[in-house]
Simulated scan of single mutants.
Amino acid sequence: MGVAVRVLIVDDDDLVRHALRAFLTHDDRVVLVGEATDGSDVVQICEAVSPDVVLMDIRMPVVGGIEATRRVLGWNSRCRVVALTTLTTELTAIEVLRAGACGYLLKSSRPAEIIDAILSAHTAERVVSPGMQTPIVRDTVASGDPGIIRSTGLNDRELQIVQLIATGLSNTDIAEALSYAEGTVKADIRRINQLWQVHNRLQIVLRATELGIVTL
Rank of each mutant, 00 (worst) to 15 (best):
A208E: 05
L169C: 06
D173Q: 15
S50D: 15
D11W: 00
G103A: 12
V198C: 10
I58E: 09
D188F: 01
L32C: 01
R80P: 01
G65C: 10
V162N: 09
G103Q: 11
T89E: 05
A22N: 05
R78P: 07
T167E: 12
T152W: 08
V43E: 10
P61A: 09
G100T: 12
A19K: 06
L211M: 09
T215Q: 06
D12L: 08
I9W: 07
T140H: 03
A208K: 08
D41T: 11
R17E: 08
G183I: 09
P146K: 09
Q194T: 02
I174G: 04
L84P: 03
M1P: 10
N193I: 00
V127L: 01
Q163I: 00
H26F: 14
T88G: 05
F23N: 02
I45K: 05
D11K: 00
H26E: 15
L87E: 06
E210H: 02
A101H: 14
A22G: 04
D52F: 11
H18M: 06
D27V: 00
D156P: 10
V63E: 13
T152F: 08
D13S: 12
D27T: 00
L119P: 00
D57K: 10
G74I: 15
T140L: 03
C102D: 06
D173G: 10
G103L: 07
I189A: 02
A48W: 12
V3R: 13
E67I: 15
G103Y: 11
E158R: 10
R59H: 15
L154I: 02
P146V: 01
M60V: 11
Q194I: 00
H199P: 03
I115S: 05
V5R: 05
A83N: 11
I149A: 04
W75Q: 09
V42P: 11
C102W: 10
K107Y: 14
V7I: 09
D145A: 04
V162T: 10
A93K: 06
T152M: 13
E35D: 05
I66K: 14
A124Y: 08
G183D: 14
R17M: 07
I204D: 05
V33A: 03
S120V: 02
Q197E: 08
C102Y: 07
Q203F: 05
C102N: 12
I118K: 03
A112T: 07
V10C: 05
I165G: 12
V72F: 14
V49W: 08
L32I: 02
D116R: 12
V49M: 08
I115Q: 05
S170D: 03
A101M: 12
V63I: 15
E47M: 07
C79H: 10
V31L: 11
R78T: 14
L20G: 01
T215I: 03
D57G: 11
T172Q: 13
R110K: 14
D156M: 14
G74Q: 15
A83D: 09
L20C: 01
I149F: 02
S50E: 15
A166F: 09
V54I: 15
W75H: 15
D41Y: 02
